[in-house]
Nucleic acid binder design. Structure first.
Lengths: 178, 178
DNA sequence: ATAAAAAGTGAGCAATCACTCACATAACTG
DNA sequence: CAGTTATGTGAGTGATTGCTCACTTTTTAT
């Protein structure tokens, strides 16, 4: 990955997150990245290719986070770590994950990111087992419940990202699982 | 509201929900509605005006649903009715509400629909009181929790709209509040 | 050093899109 | 009925956009 390639990806990510994919012209990406427009197409074929490259990074990063949760041995610790995941994602790379979540609603990339990825499935399986070990009578439904909750949490985090708010709500959610 | 005006709105709604606002040309709306393209602009000024007209309907419809919940006297019944709200919205007018939810993530209409409307606030207040009456120690946090949960539920409903799934998950959620 | 491959440029093209406008028809109004 | 307003048409326009391509510069390989 060239220095300019990374620069293009970073800029595209920032602009896509800020203005949306369809409303961000490749000319603007080139301008703000300080490269010629043609270079974008040389490296990423077309505008969709740019998005695909950004999404490929999503999988890598998610993989790291999930494997850290898998490493935990205590099932309750796994559940709590999962609850903390959205806030962690947003604190580390806000724009990147905001783009991910906004994409969930776009038809084009419906089968790509966060939601139905291998890691999502792996995590679901893990937390199902965790709930089972913790003695919950309906672990599958419990996981679905948690997924929905964290989905909504992500949505809240995008609007109200103050540290105080995050800590309060995380503590409250965790208090429901002990 | 003319017959053709309604036809345009319906068609625009369907196409916006299916393909997204930015990627739906006004020419296609006109074509599928069986009217001339110029008529769209005569009635709705510009493409944004079309969207605004659609969003104005959102407020009306939500108002009906919220006032029905307000009319209930039992606080637990209010909570349960709120839990059923997303599924109700989707069963009645799927495309319409899908568009609403997808819009949440678009910068342009961030201050418009579902989320921060008067009715959202009214409902939040109502359910806060309901939780208080039910003896929950932290009613404000409890409401936020429920909002997030229902947000995530909406997201699930869009992907997996089978009746069986909906009934199962609704029953499970409601079993948490009694 | 030289050739070949890769990286980088930017003017320009074809297509698309939101929107206009001159005009036609239909619906009210007195 | 005549006059006025509202509704409806669709070809045309200017601006924008994704993308190409002929070309230059830099890097790599031998």
């Amino acid at each position: 990955m060239t220095e300019k390639q990374e620069l293009i990806l970073e800029t595209a990510l920032r602009l896509f997150a800020k203005y949306g994919f369809d409303t961000t012209p490749t000319s603007q990406i080139a301008k703000e990245a300080g490269v010629s427009e043609g270079l974008i197409f040389r490296h990423f074929t077309n505008k969709d290719g740019l998005m695909d490259a950004i999404l490929a990074l999503s999988d890598e990063r998610m993989s790291t986070h999930v494997s850290r949760i898998v490493e935990l041995t205590d099932p309750l610790a796994q559940v709590h770590a999962t609850i903390e995941l959205p806030a962690k994602l947003f604190s580390e790379e806000r724009e990147f994950w905001m783009l991910q979540f906004s994409l969930k609603w776009q038809k084009k990339y419906k089968n790509q990111p966060y939601q139905a990825s291998t890691h999502q499935l792996e995590l679901t399986q893990l937390i199902t087992n965790a709930f089972q070990k913790l003695g919950y009578p309906e672990p599958e439904k419990e996981v679905l419940f948690l997924i929905m909750l964290l989905d909504g949490l992500s949505s809240q985090l995008m609007r109200q990202p103050s540290d105080e708010f995050i800590q309060t709500i995380l503590a409250f959610i965790k208090s429901k699982y002990r």
